[in-house]
């Protein structure tokens, strides 16, 4: 059984189709990233998964429970970390966690000890009595995540949890995600940062304009585009002196020179680069700079849409 199963999910607001026929799934215990630019429909998709919005068409299930037919069961298996902080600023961190725990049906000693555990996980045991309103942005984000962990959900959905915070808190949160996943939670992670998607995920669904335009593992997605590593080189001499020798080098698929800069597409830069340096030495040419560009999700998005992921 897939932990998350999304089938032909649709949502329109009036005439506007925010999500069109989204289909993807996540195996139990994996991290699935939903990657897409602003307005792609990520939050709308997540809102349907978490029971906030009713789909216009299609269906989705969490741990086998349809979000439209058995919403309470689906919600009970799910923890949701909303994109914007959703906490009570005039309650303390502990009071917030206790309240959200109760909303997931915990009570008594079990609730108390689980709140202690979660405070430990998010690293706020010392500050548990302070009002959330007084916390820094990064600390609020951590409580925001903590509130979704209380009932030990099988699946956790995080909507852009690292937007607008400092690199240190971001690192803390990414490590938290990995740790939760290591403990067996299935994570649906939404982001418009391709580095985060690449670092965390087993699978990635790329969304744009309400559609899932690509789905697969990081490597599969990159292969799908079929690009080789690109190497940009500059020399202390005329490109013509070396171009033919390099073109004949094993592993070089293509080589061009433009305005003194040489661009090569190679199958494996680790193997090919030393050969290029060797050939250069033999011809008495010096390489003055090298820039290696591994194909990445950005390139994939560019390839699929003709636009950059970040505008």
């Amino acid at each position: 059984m897939n932990a998350i199963e999304v089938k032909n999910l649709k949502k329109s607001f009036g005439d506007f189709q925010a999500v069109q026929d989204a289909t993807f799934s996540a195996n139990a215990g994996e991290v699935l990233s939903l990657l897409g630019p602003n307005g792609a429909g990520k939050s709308t998709t997540i809102s349907m998964l978490s029971g906030l919005l009713t789909p216009t068409g299609g269906d989705a299930s969490i741990m086998g429970h349809s979000v439209t037919k058995e919403p309470e069961l689906a919600k009970a298996s799910l923890g949701v970390v909303p994109q914007d902080i959703a906490l009570y600023p005039d309650l303390s961190a502990r009071e917030n966690l206790v309240f959200w725990g109760k909303m997931y049906g915990l009570r008594g000693a079990a609730l108390k000890s689980r709140v202690d555990e979660v405070l430990e996980i998010i690293g706020l045991t010392d500050r548990q009595k302070d009002h959330v309103g007084k916390f820094s942005g990064g600390m609020k984000r951590r409580v925001n995540i903590g509130a979704a962990l209380l009932h030990k959900p099988d699946v956790i959905i995080m909507d852009e949890p690292t937007v607008g915070i400092d690199p240190q808190s971001r690192r803390h949160i990414l490590d938290n995600v990995k740790e939760l996943n290591r403990q067996g939670m299935t994570v649906l992670y939404t982001t418009h940062y391709m580095e985060e998607a690449a670092e965390l995920s087993n699978h990635i669904a790329i969304m744009d304009k309400g559609r899932v335009i690509a789905y697969g593992s990081h490597d599969e997605l990159i292969k799908m585009v079929g690009q080789e590593t690109r190497i940009d080189v500059t020399l202390n001499a005329e490109a013509e002196k070396i171009l033919d020798a390099w073109r004949a080098t094993e592993g070089v698929a293509r080589i061009d020179s433009l305005d003194g800069k040489i661009t090569a597409l190679v199958d494996d830069s680790n193997r090919v680069l030393p050969r290029l340096f060797d050939a250069a030495s033999k011809h008495g040419v010096r390489i003055t700079s090298v820039d290696i560009q591994e194909p990445n999700l950005e390139t994939v998005f560019l390839h699929l849409t003709g636009r950059a992921l970040r505008d």
């Binding site: 906030l52 069961l73 919600k75 949701v80 909303p82 959703a86 959200w100 909303m103 049906g105 509130a147």
Partner: peptide
Amino acid sequence: EGTLARLFTTPT
């Protein structure tokens, strides 16, 4: 504040 939406995501 967004807490109402969050309440709606809980099994309540």
